[in-house]
Design a protein around this nucleic acid. Structure first.
Lengths: 249, 249
DNA sequence: CGGGGCCTTGAGGCAATTCAAATTATGTGG
DNA sequence: CCACATAATTTGAATTGCCTCAAGGCCCCG
């Protein structure tokens, strides 16, 4: 069976980026009971303060994780692509300290904590794959600290675009003429810039031939120079096989 | 036995901030085999790229976790206080993606991964406490993304000072007239500012009566206003009992 | 064809940076 | 305990990257 045909297929594929899973272990994941749920654009999956009893896996669409200052400024701290687990952390810390929200119409698979924990107790390999995947996402949090703290606007945005390209491509989605999962305001909220400055910086990247835009579509005519402009090295993603996006246009 | 007398006593105390541990479970942690190692100031515990086989627990002193851009700019992504585990993540993702470095003379306890995993396999409660503690630290990573991305210099620094105060105080260290674990350059590297601007901002905080400095010592004459200035709410630390630093001078 | 997102552009202002140097702490060996 | 070296902090002046405010344009969709 092609795992992509299964709602959790991309999740398995995500786990396999970080750890080995036998056919048997794969099946045990695909056999997990789950609730499939559709979410409109901008719908919340969980909110800050929720006591969470389910792990959400993104089946399709895009979602973000965000937190707000007391003055209401929003910071996006993660962007999720299909196959990504949104909140494995809630397995161990069920009190949500930030919100999960779709940014596109999306579907999620909701797996009860008890069911997932039971499988992890049964299979050390599955447990290990889950942990490693969760910690790869933590490494991304840290790279964002670096990105937001130390790089200038052009580098920040180029870096974010590179990361998204690699992560989306790794899931075999839209090899070329990628539609950006997020708009300019959301790029701003993810990089700590203002939407106005994001707009100007995107224009500058385009003028330099590093990206090409057509509406929501973004193309990368010169991947190598974009990577350099963003000081991007994908090691922090902890994807085992070298990503293949280098060849994409 | 007073657990503080044991090198791992503060570590147990840290775990107990986030999860229940019975006396029996506590003892099983204190009985873990470990190597005690002294580290000079600015010594590395692990470096980026290392394949790590031990979890390091900070017994005394202070340490940071950092990563660098291609241009050599350093971003500190975590500051560790005594009792903190430095790298539980390496249990599951043994390839270090950033460096751990002392910023004061320090001692660490090195616990072999295999020993810690064995204990976690034996005791679900210990495993849960370890996981919860690790994820509380991940929540701190995310708060730093928010702090660096959305707040201005005064808020950033006030927020960082509040976090450090609470975390140090929670370990029962130096109730008043706290010596800052880090210098101004390191505050800069942790907040994404320059050392010069950190200096000016500290002066401004002092002029407003939010902090009082004497050499390396920092006092908080008006904790409430400092907390407000830093938009600081300790919920994200996931410390179960309300921290007591409100009363400290 | 009208309304609401989203994107785009301009002008002016400010927070934070850069560069450079002076001053003050900290530590060390004699 | 002093003299020296080194690290850390402090200050000034000039610059700039990014922000704020404000308005206009585009495009999708009912």
């Amino acid at each position: 069976m092609n795992p992509i045909d299964h709602p959790l297929g991309r999740f398995v594929s995500r786990l396999r980026m970080h750890a080995d899973l036998s056919a048997c272990e794969t099946d045990s994941i695909l056999d997990l009971p789950f609730t499939r749920a559709a979410r409109r654009q901008n719908a919340y999956v969980t909110r800050e303060g929720d006591a969470v009893a389910h792990c959400a896996i993104l089946i399709s669409g895009y979602a973000v994780r965000h937190r707000m200052t007391g003055e209401g400024d929003r910071q996006i701290m993660a962007i999720y692509v299909p196959g990504d687990p949104l909140n494995l952390d809630h397995l161990f810390l069920p009190l949500a300290d930030d919100a999960l929200q779709t940014v596109q119409p999306a579907e999620v698979a909701l797996i009860r904590h008890s069911d997932l924990r039971q499988l992890m107790d049964t299979s050390a390999e599955v447990a290990n794959a889950i942990m490693t995947t969760m910690l790869a996402d933590v490494s991304i949090f840290r790279e964002w600290i670096l990105n937001i703290g130390q790089r200038d606007a052009k580098e920040k945005i180029a870096h974010l675009l590179c990361e998204l390209a690699i992560r989306i491509e790794s899931q075999g989605i839209e090899a070329k003429g990628r539609p950006l999962p997020i708009n300019q305001l959301q790029i701003a909220e993810a990089t700590g810039l203002t939407a106005v400055h994001v707009n100007r910086t995107l224009k500058a990247l385009q003028a330099e031939g590093l990206i090409k835009r057509k509406g929501q579509l973004v193309e990368f005519p010169d991947w190598r120079r974009l990577r350099e402009a963003g000081d991007f090295d994908p090691y922090y993603l902890h994807i085992r096989q070298g990503p293949t996006a280098e060849s994409a246009g």
